[in-house]
């Protein structure tokens, strides 16, 4: 009898504890959120697994190539340099978030445009990410860079580091950017050669770049 009462009390206490946990612990949205590290163009954003730098931003109706690639809206081309910090890493999650918090994903249509970067440890890697977007996506656009590819649940980069880099596009600049007609040439993505003029190991690299 006493044993039965003790068991029942234990079960009730366990259920109460479970309720307390589910009521007060962040088991849903908060627990799933990624860790956002912010930055701006030409600033290096340090993630657990890589350093990400946006080195250039272009808006154009056409990406040069054979054939040239026309945008449905405009191409927003984001040049990046990325370095894996401690282990070979694949970054497959590049997307935009605009001022209205809408998402826009990268395209493979433009020649040399990539949607992922396979990084060797410690080797600078250049990648141009191309977004075919409507006008309203330009205002306040931020590049999000992470390891898991974007999906509609945003589940592949939960609890992971994500770089959020402000591309510096203000609302007042959108009309002028949209009106630009010059085509853009995109550099081939891949490792940056050590003897590239601005590579850290290049003999003529600035002192601060070699540090």
């Amino acid at each position: 009898m006493r044993r039965g009462i003790a068991t029942a009390a234990f079960v009730i206490a366990a259920m109460g504890l479970g309720r307390l946990i589910t009521d007060h612990m962040p088991l849903t949205d908060a627990a799933d959120k990624p860790f956002i590290q912010t930055g701006a163009v030409d600033e290096t954003v340090a993630l657990d697994y890589a350093d990400v730098t946006v080195t250039g931003v272009h808006v154009t109706p056409t990406i040069m190539g054979n054939p040239a690639s026309a945008a449905g809206g405009r191409w927003l081309v984001v040049d990046t340099e990325i370095v894996a910090r401690q282990a070979p890493t694949v970054m497959a999650g590049f997307f935009l978030v605009d001022a209205q918090d809408r998402r826009w994903i990268a395209s493979l249509r433009g020649p040399e445009c990539v949607t992922s970067a396979r990084l060797a440890t410690g080797v600078r890697h250049y990648a141009s990410i191309c977004f075919d977007i409507p006008k309203q996506a330009l205002d306040g656009a931020r590049l999000m860079a992470t390891r898991g590819p974007w999906d509609s649940h945003e589940s592949t980069f939960r609890r992971d580091d994500v770089a959020q880099i402000d591309l510096g596009i203000k609302a007042a600049e959108v009309d002028a950017l949209w009106a630009q007609k010059d085509a853009v040439n995109i550099r081939q993505s891949g490792p940056v050669a050590p003897d590239a003029p601005d590579a850290p190991d290049a003999p003529d690299a600035p002192e601060e770049a070699r540090q």
Binding site: S69, G72, G73, I105, R109, D132
Partner: peptide
């Protein structure tokens, strides 16, 4: 495929017509 340049379409952003 995008008719204008024969590139493959693998994804879409909203609001654009191709």
């Amino acid at each position: 495929y995008f008719v204008e340049d024969a590139t493959a379409m693998s994804n879409f952003n909203p609001g654009l017509t191709y």
